[in-house]
């Protein structure tokens, strides 16, 4: 009984994680500029990886394994926003332009510079 409940829960978590991971990556592929792509990639790193790792935790069995899985997620949880922030900062400084109504050149979709 408990095994069945655990299996169902981890199926739900893994399928949910896959959903977020795939939608996030489709977003990385389809979004028009760097900053919207960053937004989509953030979903992959937090919700996608988080739910997948939660599903694995339910199947892990031993406490040490759960601890290591949580460490993996902990690193992702802290490094992913830092990397995204640094990437947005470097992109803005380096000339990647956001799509949309621009302050300088009027509205209209435009790919990033370079």
């Amino acid at each position: 009984m408990t095994v069945l409940v655990l299996d169902l829960l981890s199926w739900a978590a893994i399928l949910g994680g896959l959903f977020f991971m795939l939608t996030g990556t489709v977003g990385v592929l389809r979004m028009p500029d760097l900053f919207t792509r960053l937004h989509a990639a953030g979903i992959t790193d937090t919700a996608g990886a988080g739910l997948l790792i939660a599903g694995m935790c339910l199947q892990a069995g031993s406490g040490l394994l759960v601890l290591r899985l949580l460490l993996v997620y902990g690193f992702l949880f802290f490094t992913s926003p830092i990397a995204a922030h640094a990437l947005a900062r470097a992109g803005l400084a380096g000339g990647a332009e956001p799509v949309g109504p621009s302050r300088r050149r009027g509205p209209g979709p435009r790919q990033g510079a370079r």
């Binding site: 760097l34 990639a41 694995m56 992702l76 992913s80 990647a96 510079a113």
Partner: peptide, 21 residues
């Protein structure tokens, strides 16, 4: 842009982490 490629490499790394697990 180069930033898109850095972003792609970063998310690719995250996926590798989860794939290995």
């Amino acid at each position: 842009t180069v930033y898109d490629r850095i972003l792609a490499a970063n998310t690719f790394g995250t996926k590798t982490v989860v794939l290995l697990a």
